[in-house]
Nucleic acid binder design. Structure first.
Length: 550
RNA sequence: UGGGGUAUCGCCAAGUGGUAAGGCAAUGGAUUCUGAUUCCAUCAUGCGCAGGUUCGAAUCCUGCUACCCUAGCCA
């Protein structure tokens, strides 16, 4: 991979360039990827991961992996292994692996500091009451009756909160800012809540937990993060981010939050809620179901980390909401795979072909290159004999115009073998095709000259006697929208079929990728393959194929 | 606009007052024992709209319009 040189710049780089020029952070660039461990990472996270890690890389800086585990009721350590695996698989290494929960003491100290400065107070209002007094988008809120408690009283109450004297929801700590602020986030936001819940990291040490808006700036500042990159919906929270740090005045310089637009891809569900729902109700095999847009799903489907990184590079980073076409991701995989993958003959929807003038007891081993564009990948041999299978799409009894594959009376090149002419179509009683009776021209053997005649089409085939049955799974869109605009599972999102492949395919190991002649790219699914039957997941089809025009 | 954002080709996206990069998609053509790949060519007198400033505007000013975010003790 060509590193650095032609990496496009974006508005975040422009901000960093200015910071470097002004010396704001002494030329340092320190970023972080802060997932909440409440689900698997998806392609949208990949954009954020690439952005944070490559930005640090570009400037010779560092990037931390930090779990944003400030809400024990929603989080689960079961996800951390997958998160780390996915980041590593994408090819990134973090500077430090950290847990926001390790900063709970420092955050508590910060809250105490705010109380002492009269900038925070303990509020006894219920969640409902807080909502009711917050005002609306157009009307200011009302001040809490507890807003003017003394510093001493607040200190006492907050200590009691920490000591576990109160039940969940009984009290909260609020920042004392401005109930009339046009920005609702500044209307005395809750910064600490009570939750008598076991925390995976701190156990039962704490029963009060900081809210994201208060915790996140502290986490960044503690780690010395310079540029805290997050998505657009946090734009309105930035004043609170800055307020928290400004009030404390503990750090100089302070990190700055920069927002960018999250990734959307056409026909792709990116909502964690929906994805988790599909996993929980058994609609998919799990978070790594090949139909899922999770990194684990894409991996199992056969996408490469290089392709995903290339995709993230190409989509750019900006603040405009956008939806990238799936075709771009597909282009990236195709481009990556075409030079690293060997081709194998697999026929879908097989039709039997009998070469009537070929000896019944003869079998030839014909040479075939693994990848025509990459000679270093060498070649292989495949058996050829009197009975073969061809792809259902490569024969038309009544050809449409410009169809140049097999049809009665037409002659085509069998890839790596001979010119074959279809002489007769033999049918079953029910009218379906039983077999094609064909003849071959011995003078046209592949690689042995005989360039006299030309033929328009080349099709692939497998030897019937040695063919291996494999299962092929092809994927469509996971979700569709119904009349009500509700997203629901697409019943046709997976199609499984049995196909015939050349014998060598039986040596495929889980994770091996191939190009199936004329069908596209496929990966051997180690999770579903057995010794007797291999399952191949489709990654992506070829760029274009013959389309029948009406 | 309560407030905060964003508008440049079908989809992304550069551009930061000097006369519209690039990629994907699409379309034509060349080569091809994969209708793939590769290769060449075409693809915004135009930058949400309307005015204004300027020798010169996607870039500055004014006024509109559309869409997104925001009223969790989630992140």
């Amino acid at each position: 991979m060509s590193e650095n040189e032609n990496k496009s710049s974006n508005f975040i780089h422009n901000i960093i360039d200015k910071d470097i020029e002004s010396g704001k952070y002494g030329g340092e660039v320190y970023t972080r990827f802060p997932p909440e461990p409440n689900g698997y990472l998806h392609i949208g996270h990949a954009k954020s991961i690439c952005l944070n890690f490559t930005t640090a890389e570009k400037y010779g800086g560092r990037c931390n992996l930090r779990y944003d585990d400030t809400n024990p009721v929603k989080e689960d350590v079961e996800y951390v292994d997958s998160i780390e695996e996915d980041i590593k698989w994408l090819g990134f290494s973090w500077d430090k692996k950290l847990w926001a929960s390790d900063y709970f003491p420092k955050m508590y100290e910060a809250a105490v500091e705010l109380i002492k400065k009269g900038e925070a107070y303990v509020c006894d209002l219920s969640a409902d009451e807080i909502r009711e007094t917050r005002g609306t988008l157009k009307e200011p809120g009302k001040e809490s009756p507890y807003r003017n408690r003394t510093v001493e009283e607040n200190m006492q109450l907050f200590k009691e909160m920490k000591a576990g004297k109160y039940k969940d929801g009984e009290k909260v700590l609020r920042a004392k800012i401005d109930m009339a602020s046009p920005n609702i986030n500044m209307r005395d936001p809750v910064i600490y809540r009570i939750a008598h819940v076991e925390h995976h990291n701190t156990g039962s040490e704490w029963c009060i937990y900081p809210m994201y808006d208060f915790a996140h700036p502290l986490e960044d500042a503690i780690e010395g993060i310079t540029h805290s990159i997050c998505t657009l919906e946090f734009e309105d929270h930035r004043p609170l981010y800055d307020w928290s740090l400004d009030q404390l005045g503990w750090w100089d310089p302070q990190p700055q939050q920069i927002e960018f637009a999250r990734l959307n891809i056409t026909n792709t569900v990116m909502s964690k809620r929906l994805l988790k729902g599909l996993v929980d109700d058994g609609s998919v095999e799990g978070w790594d179901d090949p139909r899922m847009p999770t990194i684990a799903g894409l991996r199992r489907r056969g996408y490469t980390p290089e392709a995903i990184r290339d995709f993230c590079e190409r989509i750019g980073v900006a603040k405009a909401n956008s939806t990238v076409e799936m075709a771009l991701l597909e282009h990236c995989v195709r481009e990556d795979l075409q030079s690293r993958v060997a081709s194998r003959n697999v026929v879908f929807d097989p039709i039997k072909v009998v070469i009537t003038n070929y000896p019944e007891d003869k079998t030839e081993e014909l040479a075939m290159e693994n990848n025509r564009n990459v000679p270093e990948m060498g070649g292989r041999t495949v058996p050829f004999s009197r009975e073969l299978y061809v792809d259902g799409a490569d024969f038309m009894e009544v050809p449409v115009k410009k169809y140049f594959r097999l049809f009665p009376g037409n002659e085509v090149r069998f890839k790596g073998a001979y010119f074959i002419k279809c002489e007769e179509v033999v049918k079953n009683d029910d009218g379906t095709i039983k077999e094609l009776r064909c003849t071959y021209d011995p003078a046209t053997k592949s690689g042995e000259g005989g360039e006299g005649r030309k033929v328009k089409g080349t099709i692939h085939w497998v030897d019937a006697a040695s063919a291996v049955a494999i299962k092929v799974r092809e994927y469509g869109y996971l979700m569709v929208e119904d009349e009500q605009g509700e997203e629901r599972l697409n019943p046709d999102s997976v199609k499984e079929m049995t196909c015939y492949a050349e014998p060598l395919i039986s040596e495929a190991k889980g994770g091996d990728r191939f190009q199936f002649f004329r069908h596209g790219y496929y990966i051997a699914d180690s999770k579903l393959s057995t010794d007797t039957e291999k399952v191949f997941n489709s990654i992506i089809g070829l760029k274009s194929s013959f389309k029948i025009k009406k």
